[in-house]
């Protein structure tokens, strides 16, 4: 169980001003849940993820992992970054195997495992290429395979499918849902797509910028239908899905009008 309690982050910008990137955010990421943070660009989603990952200290508040405060990054929380962080001097395969290498898994074994994961994200043919010869979307998929390789309890994903075309995106969503329903991982997932949030989230946090706050939260169940059906089509035609989508859209576009209503 991961708990975020009254988390606030204030940045001192270079020009001397202060940015309230995150203000008093509280929520839990219970086992077997996918918590989605949804919001427009600049509303503090990455800041929140970086704090959970342990890259960024909170200005106030706390983050507890199974009751113990998070003090820094660790292999228990796998991260898929918004920006490409692959190592340019290593092949795609060795990038995927990196976490296993850190754990001392023997070379042949970790390569076999990395090869399986590459096949899972559809990049088995690119194993020996350097990452800079891949497209942005392909690199993003390598990043996903890399995070899955060490089988972390918690997956933190920062707009992982943002750079993908809609077809590949659906395949990747399917993959994530498969992994999730098979392993029951806790997932924290960032997106700015309402549809993606509803498709994947068991809980959806809607955020608003400056200060970055959670302005509404929704429970959703569409991801279980998605996992059961093995296909996204049914979910998208669900009237409840359309209704919730419209509600969240209204909230995001007219936050002050709907906040009182919601």
């Amino acid at each position: 169980m991961l708990s975020i309690r009254n988390a606030s982050v204030v940045f001192d910008a270079a020009d001397g001003s202060r940015v309230n990137a995150l203000e008093n955010v509280s929520f839990d990421i219970p086992p077997k849940s996918i918590v989605v943070a949804l919001g427009a660009s600049g509303c503090g989603k990455s800041t929140l993820l970086n704090a959970i990952a342990g890259f960024l200290p909170l200005t106030s508040g706390e983050i507890l992992l199974d009751g113990r405060p998070v003090e820094g990054p660790g292999g228990d929380r796998g991260v898929v970054f918004q920006k490409d962080t692959l190592l340019p001097w290593a092949t795609v395969l060795d990038n995927v195997a990196l976490g296993l290498r850190y754990r001392g898994v023997p070379r042949a074994e970790r390569r076999d495992h990395a090869r399986e994961l590459l096949a899972l994200v559809g990049l088995q043919d690119f194993a020996t290429k350097p990452p800079y010869e891949l497209s942005g979307g392909m690199r993003q998929r390598v990043g996903i395979a890399r995070a899955l390789a060490t089988d972390p309890k918690i997956l933190l994903m920062d707009e992982p499918f943002g750079a993908l075309d809609s077809l590949t995106r659906e395949t990747m969503q399917q993959l994530l849902v498969d992994v999730w329903s098979r392993t029951g991982k806790q997932v924290f997932f960032i997106t700015h797509s309402i549809e993606e949030a509803l498709t994947l989230g068991t809980e959806i946090l809607v955020m608003s910028p400056r200060p970055g706050r959670v302005i509404a939260r929704y429970k959703a169940d569409f991801v279980r239908d998605f996992a059961a059906a093995g296909d996204i089509g049914g979910v998208l035609n669900d009237p409840a899905f359309g209704q919730l989508r419209a509600e969240i859209r209204a909230l995001i576009h007219h936050p002050t009008q709907t906040r009182t209503a919601a």
Partner: peptide, 14 residues
């Protein structure tokens, strides 16, 4: 790049 170090840390590097 700090992100590169962060990525390695979250993969469990010492």
């Amino acid at each position: 790049p700090q992100e590169r170090i962060n990525a390695a840390l979250s993969l469990g590097a010492d």
